[in-house]
Design a binder for these strands. Sequence first.
DNA 1: CGTACACTTCAACGTCCGTTCATGTGAACG
DNA 2: CGTTCACATGAACGGACGTTGAAGTGTACG
Lengths: 102, 102
Amino acid sequence: MKSASIRVAADDCAGILKVLADETRLAVVERLMQGPQHVGEISAILEVEPTLLSHHLRVLREAGLVVSQREGKQVLYSLASDVQGSRRGRAINLGCCRISFK
Amino acid sequence: MKSASIRVAADDCAGILKVLADETRLAVVERLMQGPQHVGEISAILEVEPTLLSHHLRVLREAGLVVSQREGKQVLYSLASDVQGSRRGRAINLGCCRISFK
DNA sequence: CGTACACTTCAACGTCCGTTCATGTGAACG
DNA sequence: CGTTCACATGAACGGACGTTGAAGTGTACG
């Protein structure tokens, strides 16, 4: 387990942005904005190798942006609650700033 | 001259975020949100070597986030107009998304 | 002109990061 | 139990990026 979520220091805005500044990770987050999803689904939709995706998910997890939870053989990922934008909008709330997409 | 501003493809959101995902560049942008400033001032306030700062300013310029303009010996930098948040607020408007700071 | 000032550009080095391949773990099923 | 499925982790490679020092450009001033 260990979703210790070391959560990057809130004042390290650049650090959190670095996590999001990757095509794959950004796509994952945009995907999760519409609701939780299993790794397999994400991998298929984004056409990203499961191994590679797993690595990126780890980065997102350790940054506290997403959380994981096992469901049988699969693992369900969702946006961390304190990151979720107001009512499922296209926005996320990092500690230091807030990003809204169009 | 040449502020050709190749401006990163608007759909390359990760690309633009990468530009902002650096402590120094983020600090510069936050600084410029409060108005235009000369390189020397920025360098002094942020305590960044002029050479290093110049490099980062180039990255910001080529991403179309800031614009430069000579004033005698000095060079004045300011946020690009189409990036400036509504009424000098603490927010910037990238093509793909909008970031607001607290 | 020559010098000083304010930056910018060039070249080079070290490090971090995204990707891949190989291996490990945990859950369901026969 | 052994196997298979669904992911996670570890190690390693290559390229991109931040930083530095040296040289270049442009402007003002005497």
